[in-house]
Computed example of a mutant assay.
Amino acid sequence: MNEIASQDTSLTAVKRAMGNREIAEGPARTAVLERRYEAPIKDVWDAITTPDRVNRFFLPVSGDLRAGGSYAFEGQASGKILVCDPPHLLRLEWTPPGDRGYSDQVEVRLTPDGPDATWLVLEHASVADVFRNDPDTGCYGVGTGWEGPLHYLGEYLRGVLPDRPSTEWYTFDEAEELRLANHRGREWAKIEAQHAGGADNG
């Protein structure tokens, strides 16, 4: 257990779904990702809420990190922390850089699976069309975008990532990321078609 696993190992580990729910901006669509991690719920919660640990598998984060406070992921998104209920629920406004005039909402829910494993559900809700996946045109939605961070969270929890910020060890490989995006995008396109056809209206 001393090497970072290829992201291909996570392609079948993610359960994908789409749904609908109401957020502050109005009726929203959602992309839902579910994964099981071999780690206690308190460890998973600590990993996704402690800045020095988040920085190991995702991005640098700063702010007043408490319910009612605000956060900012470097170069990615910022917003208010709407709910922080350890170790089960974290809900955030999610506003990418630039003035779009609206915010998405990201919610992470944790459920223990015995003493040493945890189910994580990440739900990204938006009133905007940020879910479309079309590998033919290189268009990928938010569901596709979340799969990489959830993979690296798993590798971090396994203890195989370098003990330093991800900006120091992660190397962007455009061809490899495009290959992964194409695969993930095709899976999400199937989910989107099912949802549009009424197969998933949860």
Rank of each mutant, 00 (worst) to 15 (best):
N133K: 03
Y156W: 08
D64R: 13
E22C: 05
Y152F: 11
V44F: 00
M1Q: 13
E34G: 09
G98K: 00
M18K: 01
W169A: 05
G198S: 08
A117E: 14
R132V: 09
A193E: 05
H195I: 04
I23A: 05
D46W: 00
P40W: 02
E107K: 07
I191E: 10
R164W: 04
R66A: 10
T9C: 06
M1I: 07
R56Y: 00
T111I: 11
C84Y: 04
L120W: 01
L110F: 03
E34M: 13
I48S: 11
D129L: 00
G79S: 03
H88F: 12
T171Y: 05
G19Q: 02
E168H: 15
L153H: 06
H88Y: 07
R36V: 12
Q76H: 08
A125E: 04
G148R: 00
H124I: 06
R91A: 15
W94E: 01
V83K: 11
L150D: 14
S103G: 14
G101S: 10
V32Y: 02
V32A: 04
R16L: 10
A117K: 08
K15F: 09
R16Y: 05
N201M: 11
D163C: 14
P40D: 04
L153K: 06
R184S: 15
H195Q: 11
D134Y: 08
A77G: 00
P149I: 03
D52I: 10
G63Y: 08
S166C: 12
A72C: 06
P40Q: 07
G198P: 03
D99Y: 03
H124D: 13
I4G: 06
L89K: 11
R100H: 15
T9N: 04
D99W: 02
Q194W: 09
A117N: 15
R56T: 07
W146G: 12
Q105W: 01
T171W: 07
R56A: 07
G98P: 01
V83Q: 11
D8K: 05
S103C: 10
E3C: 14
A199P: 00
P115V: 14
P115Q: 09
H151M: 00
D163M: 13
L90F: 01
S78E: 05
V106P: 09
S62L: 05
D64T: 13
D99G: 09
N20T: 12
G68Q: 14
G19T: 02
P115A: 09
V32F: 04
A28W: 06
E93S: 10
C84R: 15
G101W: 02
G79C: 03
F172I: 15
N201T: 08
A39T: 00
E192K: 11
M1H: 15
